[in-house]
Simulated scan of single mutants.
Amino acid sequence: FGGEPGIGKSTLLTEMLSKLSGQQCDQSFLYVSGEESEGQVAGRAKRMGLKNDSFYIYNETNWQNILNQIKKIKPRFMVLDSIQTTTSSELQSPPGTVSQIREVTYELMNHVKATGITCFIVGHITKDGAIAGPKILEHMVDTVIYFEGDQFGHYRMLRAIKNRFGNTNEVGIFEMQEDGLNEVKNPSQFFLDDDLEDSFGKSLTCIKEGTRPLFVEVQALVAENKFGNGRRTTQGLDNNRVAMMVAIIEKYANIPMGMNDIYVNVVGSMKLTTRESDLSIIAALLSSYKSKPIPKDTVFLGEVGLTGEVRTVPHMEMRIKEMEQLNYKTLVASPKVAKDYSKKSKLKIIPVRKVTDIFKVLGD
């Protein structure tokens, strides 16, 4: 279980143990902390509402001492926070080294699997965002989870990178509040909050995270450049992908956009890696360039090829059902989608065969 310092890893795990202790009062719980004192962990546990007498806190970094306590308490669930601070006295290397992490994880994994203990290991991450230590650490465990988000903001995202028990594409969204982390029941609303009326340079798309459709807002700002060398800045999107969308607009819409400064942002710290949002990116860029707002109940969904054509994306039926439930009125997609779903759906589906057809949505 990895994440940036201060992102809320310990808070989320304490919250989880609090929920489990309420459901399984007859079980023991052990929180081993090598970074925080017992008083700090206890204070957070009380704030989370954890009142189980079978919840034990142990401040220790030596693996042999931790193992003795595990054998004595026999917990059903335990947290080791963190693997980088835990050391084995059988090795001379310092904490956090490859040999220490590998040895402790191997010993821990063998014991908890043999005794049926569910164990959560907290891992530090590198400056590149990967879990620190040897890659074998991720191979040994059953599940690898990343906790992401802006530590100065209110929202956090939970992603499974590896999961031997289910889908790895699911995402959980949480809001940081005074009493801990609370689940965001309607994730789509989280990405679309604080909407500004009649503003241009933004469009909506529907992505698919695991089995869950999510509505995400793409924002673009196209500004005149006074120095002749246009700047490209993106957040949540690959810079090369945005450059490709700009080139398509220049080639097929005859708009000299490349000399402008272009900024593209995905609201809510989301990262868009699939191609279903291509049409939405182009719509946001054209909306900003033309200073024409896009109706807030309109969703853009389609992949755009290098020849300027708009193609359909998979799982359209699921996405359309979600749009209907959230009261969106218009879907801009490929002609194939319009042909297949116009009679089945309450949505107004506007077919766009090529990128220049988006102008009729903008009113040009």
Rank of each mutant, 00 (worst) to 15 (best):
residue 6 G to S: 12
residue 13 L to Y: 04
residue 16 M to P: 00
residue 23 Q to N: 12
residue 24 Q to S: 14
residue 24 Q to C: 09
residue 28 S to R: 15
residue 34 G to F: 00
residue 41 V to G: 07
residue 41 V to M: 07
residue 42 A to C: 06
residue 44 R to Q: 09
residue 46 K to G: 14
residue 58 Y to N: 03
residue 58 Y to D: 01
residue 59 N to S: 15
residue 62 N to E: 12
residue 64 Q to G: 02
residue 72 K to M: 06
residue 77 F to Y: 15
residue 80 L to Y: 00
residue 87 T to D: 02
residue 91 L to D: 04
residue 95 P to D: 04
residue 104 V to Y: 01
residue 107 E to H: 13
residue 108 L to Y: 02
residue 113 K to P: 00
residue 115 T to H: 15
residue 118 T to W: 04
residue 125 I to H: 01
residue 130 A to F: 09
residue 140 M to G: 06
residue 144 V to M: 00
residue 151 Q to G: 03
residue 153 G to V: 03
residue 154 H to D: 15
residue 157 M to K: 11
residue 163 N to C: 04
residue 179 D to C: 07
residue 185 K to R: 13
residue 186 N to Y: 10
residue 186 N to M: 12
residue 188 S to C: 09
residue 188 S to P: 01
residue 191 F to G: 06
residue 196 L to P: 03
residue 197 E to N: 11
residue 197 E to D: 12
residue 197 E to Y: 08
residue 199 S to R: 13
residue 201 G to I: 03
residue 201 G to S: 05
residue 204 L to R: 10
residue 214 L to T: 05
residue 215 F to W: 05
residue 216 V to K: 03
residue 225 N to W: 08
residue 230 G to V: 11
residue 234 T to I: 11
residue 238 D to K: 14
residue 240 N to T: 10
residue 240 N to E: 12
residue 241 R to M: 07
residue 241 R to K: 13
residue 242 V to I: 09
residue 243 A to N: 15
residue 248 I to E: 03
residue 250 E to V: 00
residue 254 N to A: 14
residue 255 I to R: 10
residue 257 M to A: 12
residue 266 V to K: 04
residue 269 S to G: 14
residue 272 L to Y: 04
residue 273 T to G: 07
residue 273 T to Q: 14
residue 275 R to P: 03
residue 279 L to Y: 06
residue 281 I to M: 14
residue 283 A to D: 05
residue 288 S to T: 06
residue 296 K to R: 15
residue 302 G to T: 09
residue 303 E to A: 13
residue 308 G to T: 00
residue 317 E to H: 11
residue 319 R to K: 14
residue 321 K to G: 10
residue 325 Q to V: 13
residue 329 K to P: 05
residue 329 K to H: 10
residue 337 V to I: 15
residue 338 A to D: 02
residue 342 S to I: 08
residue 347 L to A: 05
residue 349 I to M: 07
residue 350 I to Q: 07
residue 353 R to P: 05
residue 353 R to W: 06
residue 355 V to E: 04
residue 358 I to H: 05
residue 361 V to F: 01
